[in-house]
Design a protein around this nucleic acid. Sequence first.
DNA 1: GTATCTGCAAATTTTTTGCCAGTAG
DNA 2: CTACTGGCAAAAAATTTGCAGATAC
Lengths: 145, 145
Amino acid sequence: MSPPVQASVESDRLREALEAFGHRFTEQRGAVHRFLAGTDTHPTAEEVFHGVRAQLPAISLATVYKNLETLVGCGMAIKLSYSDGSSRYDGRTDPHHHARCNRCGAVMDVPGSLPTEMMTASDVCPGFHVTGYRLEFTGVCASCA
Amino acid sequence: MSPPVQASVESDRLREALEAFGHRFTEQRGAVHRFLAGTDTHPTAEEVFHGVRAQLPAISLATVYKNLETLVGCGMAIKLSYSDGSSRYDGRTDPHHHARCNRCGAVMDVPGSLPTEMMTASDVCPGFHVTGYRLEFTGVCASCA
DNA sequence: GTATCTGCAAATTTTTTGCCAGTAG
DNA sequence: CTACTGGCAAAAAATTTGCAGATAC
């Protein structure tokens, strides 16, 4: 019989990432991370706040902002900023792209990664050392079409 | 011999774009557009404000914001928003990519365009109709390295 | 025990809006 | 003429900060 080891694997990953950057593991950080990891809707800070409050009614919006920033700094989340002024957070950190609906603003994941030769190509910019990239498609999603 | 036709070609393009969307051509819009077209530094709204004020000392920040939005709406400029909360404007509207330095925040142009097959690929997202995309490299620029 | 973290409220920063006079077409 | 604009100042939205008590390690 397997003990409930599996249940803590994700939070262990978080703990390690936090400690690697000199941060501490807290209940709030765990909750923010768990919420992000459990959704693929790319929520705004406000939406994360509301979602996390369901489990941690006393958490404050300021803490959510601080913790989202901490997670991004640890590489446990990605922040996506848009031209309409909104910012959204993504708990998936493996290579993937995004598609954003111009109509409703929804953001969805798109599998795949850019061919390596595109990232090392010298025509990227003379002297520029590429470490990452962001590829985002824009258009109209299925429900809006 | 040749009359000063060339000088007005750019503003004519702007005028046409504005009128196509029911907007009017004004001195301020011309100046904002001219400033954007004359730089490749991808300035912030505030920087556009300062730059344009050199030629139009009476222009207000609010007008710059409104006009940048108008230009973006007409397809005469592109707005780029970043995770650090800043937004920058690009007067180039032909297909190209960007590279952003994580150290100093500078944004530069990168020639090229995504292979067509990547944009029509069905794996982008079921039912999603792609109309455009944004590709941005991140890393360290030559001067920061 | 002590540096870090949280919640709260206030402060900042960034962007948008209402209003009236001015202007393009 | 008349609707669209610009400038100004005020408002709204988004994010950050200072502080005192609580907590992780």
